[in-house]
Computed example of a mutant assay.
Amino acid sequence: MSYVLVINSGSSSIKFQIVDPSAGATDTPLVSGLVEKIGEFRGGLTIKHNGEKHEHVLTIPNHTAGFKRAFAELDRLGCGPTQLDINAVGHRIVHGGTIFSEPVLLDETVVSTLRELIPLAPLHNPANIDGIEVARRLLPNLPHVGVFDTAYFSDLPDSAAVYAIEKSLREEYHIRRYGFHGTSHEFIAGELHKQFDQPAEEINHITLHLGNGASASAVRGGKPIDTSMGMTPLEGLVMGTRCGSIDPGIIFHLYREVGLSIDGIDKLLNKRSGMKGLAGSNDFRDIHQMIKDGSQDAQLALDVYVTQLRRILGSYMIQLGRVDAIAFTAGVGENDPVLRRLALADLENFGVKLDDSRNESVGEGVQLISTDDSPTRVYVVPTNEELAIAQKVDRLVG
């Protein structure tokens, strides 16, 4: 059996899995691991293998040390990249700009191009590139493949992708809606279409990827026609620590009146806003408990989140005209029945009928949570971005 090593390299963490590309969506990967708090005094390495969790507390100064330590521990457990039949290494890359719309073999030319795209994703692409370069040095005999979060939305209609600013600036600085979480949205579309007898070309659906980062997509006949994230992952829905869509004038106000620097505003809107900024926590389990304890801030945070979610959901329903299915996915979407109920409240006249019992008792795999007579079916669909990346990599390298 051949596997794909899937790597998601962040600025202070490395997530990885060793995946069988032929596995099912809910199958447990052979190996999953996390290197965290890179560059801090007290870091950590966690590996799950054969139903056991192996945890280590240690200092990890940089990505090179993180990869080396992780691979050494995998070797000790007998499941290292050189001990198994690893077919290729797949790298999650956040931003492919307008250049990369398909998975690509990573070489020096491609990595150089990725560096040119850093201004489009300064918080993400540098860490992705670090992971690519270190992994290629440590595993030089394997093909390395880049899979892009933006690829699924690369063919958005111009009416959805173009921002209403001066044409020359848009074109020179590649300003447009790119969309993110594309690997997840595409995976959910594939899982969702299995629930219908019609071909994908005849199905319209909306996917709500609700995790710490959150995004929505409207898909007509198998092709996305709109998505909530924009040139960066900051636009759209309220998220764990990101504000989502706000009046752009707020940025000018924070700069002129409050005296925040551009970097300070960037950090505020990306790291200290969203649910964390509203309620002090970006964990929905905390939010619900705080509401039970009488917190008005937590109640307001949930209300703001749901209002923005319904605002985008409603606009997508109008754009599609006919919605055959709505899918909830990712950590919050898959595990929070209260949020799902609030998001779909009072939509019966629009063809959405939630079954409260099904919504409260979601099991494993794809689960129908609407009533049997609901014109629009509602599903909870577990996402598996690592499996989706592994499958794309496997198709490219054979």
Rank of each mutant, 00 (worst) to 15 (best):
G211M: 06
H185P: 06
S184R: 12
Y178M: 09
E202H: 11
A200S: 13
A189L: 14
A189F: 05
Q198F: 04
E172P: 00
L208E: 01
E186I: 04
E201C: 03
I188P: 03
K194P: 01
F180M: 05
F187W: 10
T183K: 04
E186L: 12
F180L: 05
E186Y: 12
E171G: 10
H205N: 01
I175Q: 11
I175S: 12
H209M: 07
I188S: 03
G182D: 10
T207R: 02
H174E: 15
T207H: 09
L210G: 01
Q195Y: 06
L210P: 00
G179A: 02
R177P: 00
E171K: 14
L208H: 01
L210V: 00
L192C: 05
H181Q: 10
R170N: 14
Q195K: 11
S184Y: 12
N204S: 13
L210M: 05
R176P: 00
Q198I: 01
N204T: 11
T207E: 03
H205W: 09
H181W: 14
L210H: 00
S184V: 13
G190D: 13
A200R: 10
P199H: 06
L192M: 07
L208D: 01
E191K: 12
Y178K: 06
R176S: 12
H209W: 07
T183I: 15
F180H: 01
S184D: 11
I203H: 05
E202D: 14
Y178P: 03
E201F: 03
H193A: 00
F187L: 03
E172W: 00
F187E: 07
H193V: 04
L192S: 09
Y173I: 04
E202N: 12
I188K: 04
H174N: 15
I206A: 09
Y173S: 12
E171I: 05
Q198A: 14
H185I: 01
T183Q: 05
F180K: 01
Q195A: 08
R170Q: 15
Q198K: 11
L192W: 01
F187D: 08
Y178E: 05
R170W: 08
E171A: 14
H205S: 02
Q198R: 13
H205L: 00
R170D: 13
Q198M: 07
L210C: 02
D197Y: 06
H193K: 01
L208Y: 02
F196K: 02
Y178N: 08
H174V: 10
Y173V: 02
R176Q: 13
A189Q: 06
R177Y: 15
I203N: 04
E172V: 07
N204Y: 10
R170M: 15
F180S: 00
R177Q: 12
S184W: 12
Y178C: 08
H181N: 13
E171F: 02
F187N: 10
Y173N: 12
R177A: 11
F180T: 02
F180C: 03
F196N: 02
P199V: 04
F196D: 03
Y173L: 12
H181I: 12
E191T: 10
A200K: 09
E172C: 12
P199G: 10
R176I: 08
K194N: 03
F196P: 03
E201T: 07
P199W: 02
H174W: 11
G179M: 05
S184N: 15
H185E: 04
H185L: 06
G179V: 02
A200Y: 04
H205T: 00
I206W: 08
H185D: 05
S184G: 14
H193T: 07
H181Y: 13
I203Y: 05
E172T: 15
G179C: 06
